[in-house]
Design a protein around this nucleic acid. Structure first.
Lengths: 143, 143
DNA sequence: TATTGTTATACTCTATAACTATA
DNA sequence: TATAGTTATAGAGTATAACAATA
């Protein structure tokens, strides 16, 4: 599968590559004892976007609302995010990173990305350039 | 995150992109009622590599042996693969796609990749070229 | 009635630890 | 003793369905 040409060939080659890498990335948790990849993802959304409704976090992470409720519950219990009722619309619960959450997110990212950063560092400059561009494309593909 | 530059910035941007896309890819199962992404992955290894010990399938898919035992059990029950004791070393159990398995794999891939293929098709020729190269790099990063 | 979120529930994936059988 | 695989067990992640509260 060195040269997939058609759209479906690209899709067929991309799928296992992404699935295998994601498996590895989830396991990296063992090195950072605090956060799961899922929790880190949700916190990352809040880091970038600031305070927002829980539904928006779910949408950005491409999970269903009940899944994000569960993740946020864990983070609230750990004191990493706060959940407050919306002021204009009280159905919403606005979620926000705490200062502790922000600090732990940054520390955890550094530790967690150790493996992946090492792997990336071993690539050539050309390969890194391709990867940089590919990240944007992957996000685009994902909708 | 349009222009990550350092190795760790690339890692930090790549991680969520891969995790979110993998989530989506696992959900695609709903459209193809037969195989999970995990099962499809294992079958894909056998499709490419022919008959091999179960440990080898696990290694290629980057999962631990007990996880692959479980996956293979399901596939055997469904008649999609066969498991036979090794002839030279009877500790091994060699696994092989059945003809049915091969046919279902190919049919399922076509159906399952429908979403991803559509997304890929919407990319420009340049973006597809980047993605083609990136797939190889992702596999390399993954070890 | 429609929307936002939560609760209840169930299933898949995956891992680690302990075990069996063979080398 | 070492290796290949399986069994037993546990935990995380995710979904759907049903519900509550608010708009």
């Amino acid at each position: 599968m060195a040269e997939p040409r058609s759209n479906s060939e690209i899709a067929s080659a991309l799928r296992p590559a992404v699935l295998r890498l994601s498996r590895r990335l989830r396991q990296m948790r063992d090195e950072s004892l605090d956060l799961s990849a899922t929790q880190l993802g949700a916190m990352g959304v809040l880091f970038r976007g600031g305070e927002m409704p829980i539904g928006e976090v779910a949408a950005q992470e491409k999970v269903q609302p009940p899944s994000m409720t569960r993740t946020v519950n864990c983070l609230v219990d750990a004191g990493l995010v706060t959940r407050t009722a919306g002021d204009t619309d009280r159905r919403q619960s606005k979620v926000k990173l705490t200062e502790t959450g922000r600090a732990i997110l940054l520390a955890d990212r550094r530790r967690r990305d150790a493996w992946l950063t090492t792997r990336v560092a071993e690539l050539s400059a050309e390969e890194k350039a391709v990867l940089r561009q590919a990240i944007v494309i992957l996000e685009k593909v994902n909708g």
